[in-house]
Amino acid sequence: MLTILFDGIAYGMLLFVLASGLAVTLGLMNFINLAHGSFAMAGGYVTVILVNRLGVPFFASLPIAFLASAVIGFVFERALYVHVYKKPHLDQVLFSIGLVFMSVAAADYVMGSGQIFVQIPKFLQGQFEIYGIGIGRYRLLIIVICGLLTVALQFILANTRFGSRLRAAVDDSRVARGLGINVNWVFALTFAFGSGLAGLGGALGAEILGLDPTFPLKFMIYFLIVVTVGGTSSITGPFLASLLLGIGDVAGKYYVPTLGSFVIYTIMIVVLIWRPQGLFSRAASR
């Protein structure tokens, strides 16, 4: 039982790292970016190439995956996204679905359509037991890394100059502009950082989630659930939503496998109808 809880937490924290960038994009520019998973996939494939083909150590590949996805995110943001921010939601949806489809086909072309796993170091494989709880070494690593990232993220947002500018821009971009904050620049950096986090999540998750070209499509709904259920007004909301989703999904698949993803989708619909602003959102934030 506790093993499931443990796995669920690992899964949830992974989801959080994957989706946190999306929460910021959505909250900051009110932009619906369905292509967020594509940046995660990019990070995953970068790690696969580095580790499996070039023999780069796994731990060294993680920051590279982060940087690669961040750079890709930055380039796309400056070249394409920036032109779509002001367009209606329909355009944003069409545009980002287009990117998803292109990335899926491109990954298929470059990497092949099969599922790929990263060769993780020997000492991270297998599991050990503490008080009868089976602890996967790799999952423990994920919890540690993602936990550190979450704390760091919270620290950056709450205590740094960039964080305060970002929060100002989230709360009211016009006022922020008036205060002399370069909102465009803040957003480009945030977008790049969020893409980087997604890429790191993709790299870490390649082992558990599996990596294949349809990754952005398969997990799109999960990312969206995290941000819509969690709300975009803080990172605590998406964090809690990720944990709930992770635990719920793992437990659901273990205990009631016949129901499949039923439970998750139903809960999502109920929550969205019940609290359209998100379960953990400040009331009437927008």
């Binding site: 032109h83 355009d91 990117l99 292109m102 491109a106 298929d108």
Partner: peptide, 17 residues
């Protein structure tokens, strides 16, 4: 046949841009 989604995606992006 396999890469047909790429062209759909490209058309979507171009239409929006």
């Amino acid at each position: 046949p396999q890469y047909w989604p790429f062209w759909i995606g490209l058309v979507l992006v171009v239409i929006v841009m």
